[in-house]
Amino acid sequence: MPDFSQRFLFDDSDIRGELVGLNDSYSHVLAKHSYPQPVAQLLGELLAAASLLIGTIKFEGLLILQARSSGAVPLLMVECSSEGELRGIARYHAEQIGADASLPELMPDGVLAMTVDPKAGQRYQGIVDLEGETLADCLTNYFATSEQLPTRFWLSADGQGARGLLLQQLPADRLKEADEREASWQHAIALADTIKAEELLGLDNETLLHRLYHQEALRLFEPRPLQFGCSCSRERSSRALISLGQADAEALVQEHGGRVEIDCQFCNERYLFDAADVLQLFIDGSSDEPSDTRH
């Protein structure tokens, strides 16, 4: 099944849900770097989380999840666009990573940042301490401390696939009484907490939801496709050189033997610029094609 996110609603309570499954895009991300298994799992979980969250925010632009720490994994970073394009990267110290290392062991003293970067409008960022045994716990804590709608996450990844489930309590509509709303919310969470990792990774959506909520009335909407996509380009690399100023850009070319290489950390695409390219940039800003002097 292609990568997807799929929304569902509880007909008799004020709760929405989202399911995400990633295989191809997750494989693309892992193929670019040789990650240790614990790092590959964390990165898969964060990819699934970003895919879940992009469905909760109605905007055009980019959602960025970034976890930083002082430990063996100083950086996890995932981006998901409103068009459903995903990319991600991790930084790690392999010699410090055990085969079964947990999130607290890999990322002590960490922080988790969620950034919403719309095409139009103001950029927003929220930051919370990376506290919890799992990334799902940390994301749940983020929503609890940011005074947003109560939201819970379940995430799993195994180096082959990544899956995620989100439940979110909606504003009062069907259930007006506070006690009744809370009981309904806790009931939905308690059932979701029975999911095993192998079930989340291995079952299709209809089977999974039936196993959890066969006594509830649910509406399952059409899946939305997701795919790997990188926003790097020769034009963006050119802008980075232009930002240095002509003298420094030309000096950089000379220092590197007549050619500057700009590599994308996410997809490993390489953009090459020689002296003629750099000169052309400062003449007219053109970056469409490399010069004919390339060897």
Score class of each variant (00 low, 15 high):
F273R: 01
R234Q: 08
S287T: 13
D288A: 11
I242H: 08
R236M: 09
L244A: 15
V128R: 00
P290M: 12
D14L: 07
R87K: 13
R7C: 07
Q265E: 15
L86C: 07
P150T: 06
S184M: 14
Q66Y: 01
V20A: 08
E235L: 14
V111W: 00
S25E: 02
L175N: 08
I189V: 15
A101D: 07
Q41F: 08
Q246S: 13
A162T: 10
L135N: 09
E206W: 07
F143M: 04
I189C: 12
L112D: 00
T207D: 15
E133S: 14
A94T: 09
I54M: 14
G110L: 00
L139G: 00
D179Y: 12
L9I: 04
P36K: 03
E133A: 10
S237G: 10
S184R: 12
L76K: 00
Q168F: 02
D129G: 04
K58N: 12
R234V: 11
C267Q: 14
P290N: 07
D274Q: 06
L191G: 08
N268V: 10
A276Y: 05
P2V: 10
D284F: 09
I54Q: 11
L53A: 12
L75K: 01
I64M: 09
D3E: 12
Q246Y: 11
G285T: 13
E60C: 07
L226Q: 01
L226F: 02
L112K: 00
T140L: 00
R87I: 04
L149W: 12
H187I: 03
A72C: 01
H256V: 03
L218E: 05
G44E: 09
G17K: 07
G55Q: 12
Y35R: 07
D11Q: 13
T145V: 11
T56Q: 13
L200R: 02
S238M: 13
Q265G: 15
L149R: 11
R236C: 06
A188E: 03
R91C: 03
F153C: 08
V39T: 01
G44L: 10
A217Q: 08
V29R: 09
P290G: 13
D11I: 06
L19I: 09
G258L: 02
G245R: 10
